[in-house]
């Protein structure tokens, strides 16, 4: 069998920090959370905030369509070759946790085809509160919930709320209308997460995705250090 000279060796197997050619691969950050909490909007806002300073790409995991990928394409937050959709066979949590093979193919293909990349955002399909990313797929994960989903979500906990590297409570502008108590959500989150950070954001506010983008920059600084 002849060797394919574009590859010095077979692709990395899982979470190896180095690519086959020895260079450091892109930082991979997962965004999970329930349906409608604003994952895709947060990804879009992050792309707009970071695209001028970083080389980045997005992998979406849709449930039964390419809708999230289509949204990002339509919004033109990144050139189309930097956005890939993974199909999940009606089980979005499986594709990010139990069988990450399709997502690993997707992130490696992005690095091969548009690389070198600094950052890849992997967005999960909207799922339930127990869905978390495998450490074999992402280096850090953000869990996105929103105030309209019920202000008792932080109190209820669950792996996403409790263990995500960053918890984002989205749509804070809606709190007065849906009767959510932001103070209580913050206290419950603190109780569940101890020192792990929480960001309250409204993408409609002037600050928008700023706090999350700053957190991502810090992760990236630690990754490349």
């Amino acid at each position: 069998m002849h060797l394919d000279h574009s590859h010095d060796g077979p692709a990395a197997v899982s979470a190896d920090a180095r690519r086959p050619d020895g260079t450091r691969r892109a930082l991979r950050i997962g965004l999970g959370g329930p349906v409608g909490s604003g994952k895709t909007a947060t990804v879009a806002a992050l792309c707009r905030a970071l695209r001028d300073e970083l080389s980045l790409a997005v992998v979406t995991n849709d449930i039964y369509t390419r809708e999230d990928a289509e949204f990002l394409l339509r919004e033109a937050v990144l050139p189309p070759e930097r956005i890939t959709a993974v199909e999940t066979g009606a089980c979005p949590h499986t594709a990010i946790r139990d069988d990450i093979s399709a997502n690993l193919e997707a992130v490696e293909d992005l690095e091969d085809e548009v690389g070198p990349l600094d950052l890849i955002l992997v967005e999960s399909g909207g799922d339930n509160l127990t869905a978390t990313f495998s450490r074999g797929l992402v280096d850090a994960q953000i869990f996105v919930i929103d105030v309209a989903g019920g202000d008792d979500i932080p109190r209820k906990g669950g792996p996403g709320v409790t263990t995500a590297d960053l918890l984002v409570v989205n749509k804070t502008d809606l709190a007065p209308y849906v009767g959510s108590d932001l103070g209580r959500m913050a206290a419950d989150a603190k109780a569940q997460r101890a020192e792990l950070p929480v960001v309250f954001q409204s993408l409609r506010a002037e600050s928008g995705v700023r706090d999350v983008a700053d957190w991502v920059r810090k992760q990236l600084a630690a990754w490349t250090a």
Binding site: M1, L3, D4, H7, G9, P10, A11, S101, E105
Partner: peptide, 28 residues
């Protein structure tokens, strides 16, 4: 081919083998 590549990844992690490595190189 897509499923072959995904199986290749899982198999190489589970049962490392030079034959699998060679096939992965032949069919990236």
């Amino acid at each position: 081919r897509k499923l072959g590549r995904q199986l290749m990844r899982a198999a190489r992690a589970t049962w490392p083998s030079s034959e699998l490595d060679a096939l992965a190189r032949e069919f990236p």
